[in-house]
Design a protein around this nucleic acid. Structure first.
Length: 576
DNA sequence: CCCCCCCC
């Protein structure tokens, strides 16, 4: 935004007087203009320095009062680090939540989830004074009012009335009246007596750890797995897992056996729930790439209560941790990841018979591309049957398994979240624009055809080292870097006629009647593509080695495209 | 406490 200097000097944006107290009373919808009266750095409490994240605490001023316990969401750290947000900056608070730590002692925090810097440089406006503690604790505080009513000796059988009387301010309490769950009031009594589900003490998912003894989260179910049976040394069992998300982060939760049966029917994908009293343990990174360092197990103690959807508008639908497709080359096989790309092509449904179970499974294969690389993705069963990629949609995958077929490939679990045109990431628009402009006609390195996209981590070797250490002699491919010169190129077979079908790659047979037969597709085509397969010799100071060079690399080596080379070859053949 | 998604 352009603001003339003269304007900056003459007028200060008017601050929203009284907004801080309104926020603290949970009237958080207003987008107040406030001034940053102070910034403090808070060291992260986590033990693991690799995941430590700097946090900033702001003292905000509304011109009349200041409040100093305002936590800045970490995604806005860069505003401070780039010096855009600094002392005395004027900001607009776009999304804020109240976090009550200890209401009796006025320990309340404002969590700033979204803000915009309206004016970076400014001088302190007015002479604001710290908001008195009594104002925070008393004086119309809806929190206290409800507490007082509930403790009142007057018997009030219908709790819903009590809550309505209280205030609309605590939307979480108000919502309980509106939830569809008929057991809700009963649950609430039970919760109150056992002190299990304390909605006045909501913590954010990213603060959860196994050493906290009492917490409640308010989270959306972003993904829910099927009930699965298993058998191990301890006998049979069953379980289901689901992924929980809030503004701060995401965590996986699992319930076993009786708890599985109890909670499975209560939870819906997209629903928002209060959850308290579950156990936490370190996340198993082979199967869980959610942001939390921990995962949750629901047990007989766990309390779960539905929350009205209207009260969860600021809870995201899902959080993705995308890695670029080329980065999948560096990830261990059998791990899971999140990635996003454009569906460049889609196969028909195919049926395979599982070796283990002798059962038939339907599958569909996609080619997923981003700006640097492509990879094959397999969908199974219902996910395969329902998928339609004909419009080349942007596809996000969360929790997809990394396989090593053809180098690297992806295979969806039942629990993989398959999201078409995800609206909550800027990548969707970026990929769309890139694909429509140039991506659709680009021939990118395919990780499922042994290509590494220039990104695979491989060591440098001399040719004699590679020969002597058995490189390339096992069942699985090895990847090395070699520095040498190209000493010979075999001129006989440089290009071949390739099947025009995307992802096929098979050599076609010229039927000499204008059609070209692909044995793999079992189909004849009226066209084909020229493709490189160059046999060359490379030499370094320790020896020589024949190599095959394909696609991009061959194009780089020879300086023209396979298509151009093929046309020349055709002309030469015809003229002789 | 599971950790499985199948085939080339």
């Amino acid at each position: 935004m352009f603001i003339p200097d003269s304007f900056k000097k003459m007028t200060n944006p008017r601050l929203t007087t009284g907004a801080l107290l309104r926020y603290l009373r949970e009237n958080t919808s207003e987008k107040a203009i406030l001034q940053v009266a102070g910034i403090k750095t808070i060291d992260s409490k986590t033990d693991d320095s690799s995941t430590a994240m700097k946090r900033y605490r702001l003292m905000l001023s509304d011109g009349k009062s200041t409040f100093s316990s305002c936590m800045l969401g970490t995604q806005m750290n860069k505003l401070i680090e780039t010096n855009s947000l600094k002392e005395n900056s004027i900001v607009r608070i776009d999304r804020v939540m109240v976090n009550i730590i200890d209401k009796q002692n006025g320990r309340v925090m404002l969590m700033i989830h979204e803000l915009e810097v309206v004016q970076s440089d400014c001088e302190l406006i007015g002479q604001p004074a710290a908001l008195p503690l009594t104002d925070i604790i008393n004086n119309g505080s809806s929190i206290n009012r409800i507490e007082a009513t509930e403790n009142s000796p007057v018997a009030v059988p219908a709790t819903t009335n009590v809550i309505r009387q209280g205030s609309k301010a605590i939307s979480t309490l108000d919502d309980r009246n509106n939830t569809k769950n008929s057991n809700n009031d009963n649950n609430r009594f039970a919760s109150k007596s056992s002190n299990a589900l304390d909605k006045e003490r909501i913590v954010e998912i990213d603060t959860l750890n196994p050493y906290m003894n009492k917490w409640t989260i308010k989270a959306r179910v972003s993904n829910k797995g099927q009930i699965r049976n298993y058998q191990n040394a301890r006998g049979p069992g069953k379980l289901f897992s689901c992924d929980l998300v809030d503004q701060s982060g995401e965590i996986r939760a699992t319930a076993f056996n009786a708890d599985c049966d109890k909670f499975y029917p209560l939870l819906e994908v997209g629903g928002i729930y209060y959850i308290a009293r579950a156990s936490l343990k370190p996340a198993n990174r082979q199967f869980n790439t959610l942001k939390s360092d921990y995962e949750m197990t629901w047990n007989h103690d766990t309390c779960i209560e539905a929350c009205n959807a209207d009260d969860g508008q600021n809870i995201p639908q899902v959080q993705f941790n995308f890695i670029p497709i080329c980065e999948i080359a560096n990830r261990p096989v059998n791990n899971t990841c999140d990635t996003i790309g454009v569906v460049k092509s889609t196969s028909d449904i195919q049926t395979i018979v599982s070796k283990a179970s002798q059962k038939e499974f339907n599958k569909r294969e996609l080619l997923l591309v981003d700006e640097k690389a492509s990879i094959a993705v397999t969908l199974w069963g219902q996910q395969a049957e329902e998928f339609n990629g004909s419009s080349n949609p942007v596809l996000a995958l969360k929790g997809v398994k990394i396989g090593d077929f053809g180098g690297r490939s992806l295979s969806c679990f039942n629990s993989t979240l398959i999201c078409l045109e995800p609206s909550d990431t800027p990548r969707t628009a970026e990929l769309r624009a890139w694909y429509d402009a140039e991506g659709k006609s680009m021939d990118l390195p395919d990780l499922s055809k042994g290509s590494d996209g220039g990104n695979r981590q491989a060591s440098f070797k001399t040719l004699s080292q590679a020969t002597n250490d058995g490189t390339g002699t096992s069942d699985k491919p090895d990847y090395i870097n070699v520095k040498g010169i190209c000493t010979l190129i075999k001129k006989e077979s440089v290009v071949y006629m390739m099947c025009p079908e995307e992802r096929c790659g098979k050599k076609v047979i010229d039927e000499n009647n204008g059609t070209y037969r692909c044995e793999k597709c079992n189909k004849s085509y009226t066209n084909f593509k020229w493709a490189y397969m160059v046999s060359a010799e490379i030499t370094d100071n320790t020896g020589s080695q024949w190599i095959n060079v394909f696609h991009h690399e061959a194009e780089t080596l020879l300086g023209i495209t396979a298509e151009e080379f093929g046309k020349h070859k055709l002309n030469v053949n015809i003229s002789y």
